[in-house]
Amino acid sequence: MEKVKIYSRFERFWHWTQMMLILLLIITGFEIHGTFEAFGFETSVRLHSAAGWAFLILTIFAIFWMLVTGQSRQFVPVRNNIKSQIMYYISGIFKKEPHPVKKTADSKLNPLQRIIYFGLIILVFPVQLITGFSYLFFHYPDKPFAFEGLEAIAVLHTLGAFLLVAFVLAHFYLITTGHTITSNLQAMITGYEELEEETETATN
């Protein structure tokens, strides 16, 4: 059993701050949406805007960090092993088979994670940020230029929000599918993860 450093300090800070902000955005956003009552509408509106700004700033830092460190490549989808990763979740995991793709510091994400996270980063986050800030600044049709009202922006924003909720739920569950139930969680907290021992040398 070896303990390998997987997540840097910034990555962990980024992850947990992002988690808090997104949870806050989801709760306040869906209160605004009329789904439930949480903090009260007005408080939720104020919290949502503040959290939106915080999320924007954090995202800018994250992009900066990714570009500087080159870690952005972690999120680029790969073709190999997509099928075997799917098969692992569908059957292998029930048969105590090993993870098909070895997790290393150089490749932290499995092929499915790469696709999903890439989608979040390239699609859902930008859509939420762009529609969110449009929502914030252009809520009326005449100033400074004409959007056909708020509806398209709001509906897109809501769609993105639903996708994020689904992601968060799945994510909560899937972090329990590491080497042990909590090994993924521990890694994101301490930065170190106990990885599966190499049974044979990786082929790729």
């Binding site: 962990r12 947990w16 408080t43 503040a50 915080a54 907290i189 301490t190």
Partner: peptide, 18 residues
């Protein structure tokens, strides 16, 4: 990095919202 700093950001956000 995993608890205190994220909490600090959250508190700052709450402060701004208030």
């Amino acid at each position: 990095v995993s608890l205190l700093l994220p909490l600090a950001v959250l508190l700052l956000t709450l402060k701004v919202a208030a």
